[in-house]
Design a binder for these strands. Structure first.
Length: 284
DNA sequence: CGCAGGCCCTGGTAGC
DNA sequence: TGCTACCAGGGCCTGC
């Protein structure tokens, strides 16, 4: 599942292949893939034809391609989205949703998405920062991310710490996998109330979030072919470096207790029962 | 306004 | 074998 490290890997992979190139025709193969582009597929293709891509940028799990027109193509990979660079003669993928051709020929850029949770849109005037993602917080790898503001904001919330980590308006880029990994590293159960966490604990958690994201970016960057910008969450480093996610009933790397799986927010959470004790019920 | 929960979507797999 | 049920889960939307 693409979270910040996977999206950053895609960003880096795309940068070397699309920056400076001029779009020719754009083909929308499935309207749901551009459902956030309210003017529709015909407008989407028309406003992009002939434009030059000048950068590839990212905030959290969002990517955008600033154009010479001042607009930008903004995209989210959802759960199964991929941006692939392919020669024109490569057969269409089963779930090909959008195709970008370039005036200089190969490779073309393809948006492929099995489950169509992801999507693309053109953001008018969005080259610097698309208005569509202005509500998304800076991510912890952003040099302008404010640690002190984050720690204060978390402690003002009245919710559970895992919910806060997944709230993209508070901190972006973290999904279910890296939330579980960072909580394990910190020794916190995901249901710990945010307003009862000491500032020093939130600070430690943030440091672990950064560490696990950075490590994953490093490993992700080496496991992908330059021409095939893969965001398949099952591949690459995932299996090797995760300590809790997907490891139900396997021993904790730190203490040997068997990793447990709990249902949380209608999805699975993995944690160590010894390193990450559940909070005692407290009267609030 | 802050927070919780439902919904969208489809391929793979477990179970009968 | 073939069918059904369930699971993966980020972000948007609604309701309290």
């Amino acid at each position: 599942m693409p979270e910040l490290p996977e999206v950053e890997t895609v960003r880096q992979g795309l940068a070397g292949w699309v920056i400076g190139r001029r779009l020719d025709t754009v083909e929308v193969r499935h309207p749901r893939a551009i459902r956030r582009h309210l003017p529709g597929p015909v407008h989407f293709a028309a406003v992009l034809a002939g434009r030059q891509i000048i950068d590839v940028r990212r905030r959290g799990k969002y990517l955008w391609l600033p154009l010479d027109s001042g607009d930008a193509v903004v995209g989210h990979l959802g759960m199964s989205g991929q941006l692939l660079l392919q020669p024109a003669h490569a057969p269409d993928e089963t779930h090909l949703r959008v195709r970008f051709r370039f005036v200089d020929g190969d490779p073309q850029l393809r948006f492929v998405d099995q489950r169509t949770f992801g999507g693309l849109a053109v953001s008018a005037g969005g080259a610097e920062l698309p208005a569509e993602i202005a509500h998304i917080a800076r991510d912890p790898l952003d040099p302008d991310f404010s640690d002190t503001a984050f720690v204060a904001a978390v402690r003002r919330r009245r919710t559970e710490i895992k919910r806060a980590l997944l709230d993209q308006s508070l901190i972006s880029g973290i999904g279910n996998i890296y939330a579980d990994e960072a909580l394990w590293r910190t020794g916190l159960h995901g249901t710990r109330p945010t307003d009862r966490l000491p500032a020093a604990t939130v600070t430690r958690l943030l440091a672990h979030v950064r560490d696990v994201l950075r490590a994953a970016v490093t490993e992700g960057g080496t496991s992908f072919d330059a021409l095939y910008v893969n965001v398949n969450g099952e591949s690459g480093y995932f299996d090797r470096s995760l300590n809790v996610y997907g490891r139900e009933d396997q021993p904790c790397a730190r203490c040997g207790a068997l990793i447990r799986r709990e249902s949380f927010m209608n999805r699975s959470s993995f944690s160590c029962p010894r390193c990450q004790p559940r909070p005692r019920a407290v009267r609030r």
